[in-house]
């Protein structure tokens, strides 16, 4: 009898993850299962949202095979690739550098730590607008300053520089995210590790590579995973800063999806593109996930 009770208790104990996980899964499931199924269904149709005179028709995988003849998609994939590489690399590198410096010289709470987080708090739509003012070739303060320093003014949003500018502005807006996470990660590394390293006579570089970096790997993975996914979805800053231009030089994937979905209102094709974004994300991020998982199983 007591045996059965403890068996039941054990079974309950084993299943109690459901109690923890359940509510979240229900919330996310109720909101995403229907849209996902509906989205997949839509991606197999030709459906124009505002032109009911175009009949809604089932087209099978045509939307997906159309990818191969869509030169604009290829261009925006290339733009997205460069954009994602640039922003993620900068955010990881600068974020880590600044977090390290802050960690070395500052107390746990200080005004500086507070200030570096501020750019994140500005509405993204306005981020693009304020940078457009700063970067304006005639009136912008940046050109005014570099002219004052004796350098020729630049067309920051012109064909040569636009993509680099967009990468820098996006990095500006989201660095607080990586700084915050890296700072958290750094302050969770126990002091004893460093003390031990110091006793061993390890230099700063060796300490960094043998203690800091390995202990930051979780943070690094989280930053990489979420910044990659954000880069593949990046919309607001680019939209207000360049509108995807000049020409289509900065039209990243999300802008292209938006163009097809809410300008042409070709919702079937836009859905197929969304699925493509998801697939690409998984291909890029997949290795990080399984790596993360291996670590804690």
């Amino acid at each position: 009898m007591a045996d059965t009770i403890s068996q039941i208790r054990a079974a309950f104990h084993r299943k109690s993850y459901l109690f923890f996980l359940g509510p979240s899964l229900i919330i996310m499931g109720s909101l995403t299962l229907y849209p996902m199924v509906y989205g997949i269904k839509l991606s197999l149709t030709r459906y124009n949202l505002v032109r009911p005179w175009i009949p809604k028709t089932f087209v099978g995988l045509k939307n997906f095979t159309d990818f191969f003849s869509d030169e604009y998609l290829v261009k925006s994939l290339w733009v997205t690739f460069k954009f994602a590489m640039g922003t993620v690399a900068l955010q990881v590198f600068i974020g880590l550098l600044v977090a390290l410096v802050l960690h070395q010289i500052l107390k746990k709470t200080s005004l500086l730590r507070f200030m570096v987080l501020l750019p994140m708090l500005i509405v993204p739509v306005v981020t693009g607008i304020i940078w457009r003012l700063i970067l304006n070739d005639t009136y912008g303060v940046l050109n005014w300053i570099i002219q004052w320093l004796g350098i020729a003014p630049q067309l920051w949003l012109g064909p040569d520089l636009a993509l680099i500018t967009v990468i820098i502005v996006e990095t500006w807006a989201w660095l607080p995210f990586s700084i915050l996470l890296f700072s958290l990660g750094l302050s969770s590394i126990p002091e004893q590790y460093y003390e031990a390293a110091a006793i061993d006579g390890a230099g700063p570089w060796r300490t960094f590579f043998t203690i800091t970096l390995p202990n930051l790997r979780w943070t690094l993975f989280i930053v990489l995973v979420f910044k990659f996914s954000d880069a593949l979805k990046a919309f607001d800053t680019i939209y207000t800063l360049t509108g995807g231009g000049p020409g289509i030089a900065t039209r990243a994937l999300a802008l292209y999806v938006q163009n097809r979905g809410f300008t042409d209102f070709e919702i079937g094709y836009a859905m197929a593109l969304s699925i493509l974004v998801l697939t690409i994300s998984f291909i890029i991020i997949g290795p990080f996930i399984s790596r993360l998982d291996k670590q804690y199983e």
């Binding site: 505002v50 032109r51 005179w53 064909p159 995807g244 231009g245 000049p246 020409g247 289509i248 030089a249 163009n259 300008t263 042409d264 209102f265």
Partner: peptide, 23 residues
């Protein structure tokens, strides 16, 4: 016509590509 937003989209896209030196 109801397609005018698409005409804008196509026009803005392709003509701005002249200005960016692409076409």
């Amino acid at each position: 016509i109801g397609e005018f937003t698409s005409i804008w989209q196509i026009g803005a896209q392709e003509i701005s590509r002249i200005f960016s030196g692409e076409l």
